Simulated scan of single mutants.
Amino acid sequence: MPALQSIDAVPGAPEALARVQLSAIPDDKPMLRAAAELTRDIARARPEIYWPDMIGSALVGYAALAGTILVDNVWLALALGVLSVLTLYRALLFIHEISHMHRDALPGFRTAWNALVGVPMLTPSFMYEGVHPLHHARTRYGTGEDPEYLPLALMKPWSLPVFLLVALLAPPALVIRFAILTPLGLLIPPLRTLTWERFSSLAINPAFRRRPAEGEMKRRFLIQELACSAWAIALIGSIFAFGWRPLLIALGVASAVAVFNQLRTLVAHLWENDGEAMTVTAQYLDSVNVPPPGIMAGLWAPVGLRYHALHHMLPSLPYHSLGEAHRRIAARLGSDSTLQRADHKGMMPLVVRIARSTMGRH
């Protein structure tokens, strides 16, 4: 593996990854084979983990949000607001699991999640289903056809704060999208087409255009969209019954969730690909694991996303199995393996690395 050897020859290999063109890195077949062999017995989604985790996170999040709105003590309201952000963020990230889930894996889970989380937070599962799998496609990852990839490390320094701050606008934008654009789109077909192509995906690539849904997915997605439209209109109507304060607080919490998720997205990859197609191993090395002993990653990258690189190697593995999978593969391959080159210590070193990369190129 000459490309990987050239990485090894540079002190501090992970930080020097950009010196090797990612598209030139071949697959580490022993690692991929070990990953497949060692995880076969933990590949089943366990309902006794999924259901309590999702429902408990959502209920605690809504209870804390209600407390944030209702209590008079500023510090208590702030503490409840933080709790609401963390738990609703965790509940929301099950959309990632749903996008990879086989339709027969957890009967009723997708519907329950949409009713409890997706519709109330105006982020139904259709915004990820049929979109996120494109990010894992062998020939799309890191290219212009990837809806979830921007070469942020190769862009100008101002792109990073813009990337984060734009997330603040996501909740009010979703209210407008569902309360106004959805009803108008039913009357104006060109607007409907534009809304679907541009404003119906959790994508960060501004060039991405979503194709029309087909078959059973079209009917299911329409039901989700109409439910979100009704809820968004009800949120606007709540102003007349309860005033502005409850809605503004809820939107503030939702904006904090969106920014938190955008910050996680910023450090989910190294964003160093130049647009060429890559091997699975190259995709893995352009992605990030933040394994224990650190505990903070469990808060900012919950539901298995602290093992984002491993997830790109094993996209169908359920979130509750990723930690065990990482331990098994590491034990098999040893400390000097390709597996370890995607392991990082935490969020801030990754933010600094990406920021330095942008400044060093301009």
Results as ranks from 00 to 15, higher is better:
residue 289 N to Y: 06
residue 136 H to A: 02
residue 7 I to S: 05
residue 360 G to E: 06
residue 316 S to N: 13
residue 5 Q to Y: 05
residue 223 I to Y: 09
residue 108 G to V: 03
residue 99 S to D: 01
residue 280 V to T: 15
residue 11 P to F: 08
residue 157 P to H: 02
residue 161 P to S: 12
residue 68 T to L: 08
residue 308 H to N: 11
residue 64 A to L: 10
residue 99 S to T: 07
residue 196 W to E: 13
residue 79 A to G: 15
residue 187 L to V: 03
residue 176 I to D: 01
residue 90 R to C: 09
residue 20 V to I: 15
residue 97 E to C: 08
residue 152 L to C: 09
residue 316 S to H: 08
residue 82 V to L: 12
residue 342 A to K: 08
residue 155 M to E: 07
residue 79 A to T: 08
residue 183 P to Q: 08
residue 358 T to D: 06
residue 229 S to N: 04
residue 355 A to I: 05
residue 328 R to L: 04
residue 4 L to I: 14
residue 251 L to K: 07
residue 299 L to F: 14
residue 62 Y to G: 00
residue 83 L to G: 04
residue 157 P to A: 03
residue 333 L to R: 15
residue 99 S to R: 00
residue 83 L to R: 03
residue 299 L to H: 00
residue 47 P to K: 12
residue 248 L to Q: 05
residue 98 I to E: 03
residue 232 A to Y: 01
residue 235 L to T: 09
residue 252 G to K: 06
residue 311 H to E: 06
residue 96 H to D: 11
residue 66 A to P: 01
residue 320 H to K: 07
residue 98 I to T: 09
residue 56 G to N: 01
residue 73 N to T: 12
residue 177 R to G: 06
residue 252 G to Q: 09
residue 296 M to W: 14
residue 69 I to V: 15
residue 144 G to A: 15
residue 135 H to S: 06
residue 131 V to S: 06
residue 15 E to K: 11
residue 279 T to M: 00
residue 284 Y to N: 03
residue 129 E to C: 04
residue 136 H to Y: 02
residue 111 T to F: 03
residue 87 T to A: 12
residue 147 P to R: 04
residue 36 A to F: 13
residue 337 S to Q: 07
residue 39 T to S: 12
residue 296 M to T: 08
residue 79 A to R: 08
residue 1 M to V: 14
residue 43 A to C: 04
residue 288 V to H: 00
residue 50 Y to M: 06
residue 322 L to V: 07
residue 154 L to R: 15
residue 40 R to H: 09
residue 1 M to P: 07
residue 344 H to S: 09
residue 35 A to Q: 03
residue 313 M to C: 08
residue 193 T to L: 10
residue 309 A to M: 09
residue 193 T to C: 07
residue 29 K to T: 11
residue 70 L to T: 14
residue 12 G to I: 07
residue 27 D to L: 00
residue 41 D to E: 14
residue 86 L to Q: 11
residue 228 C to E: 07
residue 8 D to F: 13
residue 359 M to F: 14
residue 194 L to A: 15
residue 211 R to Y: 02
residue 6 S to T: 13
residue 117 V to P: 00
residue 172 P to C: 03
residue 61 G to L: 04
residue 35 A to C: 13
residue 68 T to S: 14
residue 127 M to G: 03
residue 322 L to T: 04
residue 191 L to I: 07
residue 106 L to V: 05
residue 171 P to V: 02
residue 76 L to Q: 10
residue 213 A to V: 02
residue 57 S to E: 06
residue 233 I to L: 13
residue 214 E to H: 12
residue 203 A to S: 15
residue 177 R to S: 09
residue 114 N to G: 01
residue 253 V to H: 05
